[in-house]
């Protein structure tokens, strides 16, 4: 029981770290540019497809990853320059429509280029296998590597946001956009940097997760909504909120999915508990979101208007 719990907790943290990588860019884009971007999940999917292609071509996960990152930067820059840049000053409705169009295009384009059957990415040799944790409990090395890599990126972001000039501008921009323009900063360049950074992080998340997931066209969709929940819970524009929100959402989703039914069984008879558990488990994160928003409409770390 404890073992199962620890295992699920670790899985939750691993998912949380990935969610954070995706949400970090999204929350900055929302917070600083006030732009809603439905196509953010697409970038995660593209990251996975890129590494699948590059890893297959070079025969190495590491070369694949090394090539994916610059490609991700290019993808981010292009999308920013061609589409996003023209949306900053538009209504939310226009942003919704255009980025919804992007999602349709991207999903279809991926199908055309890579086909509809899922791809797989081989796990790098040194990160395969499991390590013993406690007692008989083992945990895959690769998942631990994801957690470590994600935390390292989170730390890097934290340092960047709190101790660099760009970070200072980001924080100022998230709380008050006019201040930033008043400082004489080229706001368009700042936006391009933020968007591309966010896009790269999302691609990175997709690339990291590729070896333990089958890479398919649906993968961006499920994750997009979860990142929205993360951003909303954490508070738009808050990196710290995105981090805690991501962990919270992921842990509730994974641990709750397993232990919710077990808990229910203690109050309901087994068959009813099983039924209720199956229905409730996938809804848990949304219920969590509803509860948090009910108490704090601007999220955990959002500005209350």
């Amino acid at each position: 029981m404890t073992n199962l719990f620890v295992l699920q907790l670790l899985n939750g943290v691993q998912l949380g770290v990935l969610l954070f990588l995706i949400s970090a860019g999204l929350t900055l884009v929302f917070g600083i540019m006030d732009v809603i971007n439905l196509a953010h999940g697409v970038l995660y999917m593209v990251g996975a497809y890129l590494i699948a292609t590059f890893a297959a071509a070079t025969g190495s996960f590491w070369w694949g990853l090394l090539l994916t990152l610059p490609a991700a930067v290019v993808v981010g820059l292009v999308i920013e320059a061609v589409v996003m840049r023209r949306l900053y000053a538009r209504s939310h409705l226009d942003q919704v429509l255009a980025t919804f169009g992007l999602v349709m295009m991207a999903n279809e384009a991926v199908k055309m280029i890579w086909g509809t059957s899922p791809l797989s990415v081989p796990m790098p040799e040194i990160l395969s296998g499991s390590v013993p944790l406690m007692g008989p409990l083992k945990y895959p090395v690769y998942r631990i590597a994801i957690i470590v890599a994600g935390l390292a990126v989170a730390l890097g972001l934290f340092v960047m946001v709190n101790y660099t000039r760009v970070g200072m501008l980001l924080r100022a921009g998230a709380s008050n956009r006019d201040t930033v323009s008043a400082l004489g900063v080229d706001i368009n360049r700042l936006f391009a940097i933020v968007f591309t950074l966010g896009a790269t992080l999302a691609c990175l998340a997709g690339a990291l997760v590729a070896p333990i997931l089958s890479v398919d066209t649906g993968m961006g969709e499920s994750v997009l909504i979860l990142t929205f929940v993360v951003v909303v819970i954490g508070g738009i524009g808050s990196i710290k909120g995105a981090f805690l929100g991501a962990l919270l959402v992921a842990v509730v989703d994974t641990v709750g999915g397993v232990f919710g039914p077990i808990l229910l069984r203690s109050v309901l008879d087994p068959s009813a508990a099983g039924q209720a558990g199956r229905v409730l488990a996938p809804m848990l994160v949304y219920i969590l979101m509803a509860v948090i928003l009910f108490a704090r409409p601007a999220g955990l770390f959002g500005k209350t208007a």
Binding site: A98, G101, L102, M104, M105, A106, E108, M112
Partner: peptide, 15 residues
């Protein structure tokens, strides 16, 4: 692949 064109239509229409 009609979704590609439908998506393109939306993007162009907004832009």
């Amino acid at each position: 692949h009609w979704k590609l064109f439908f998506g393109l239509f939306l993007v162009l229409m907004v832009l």
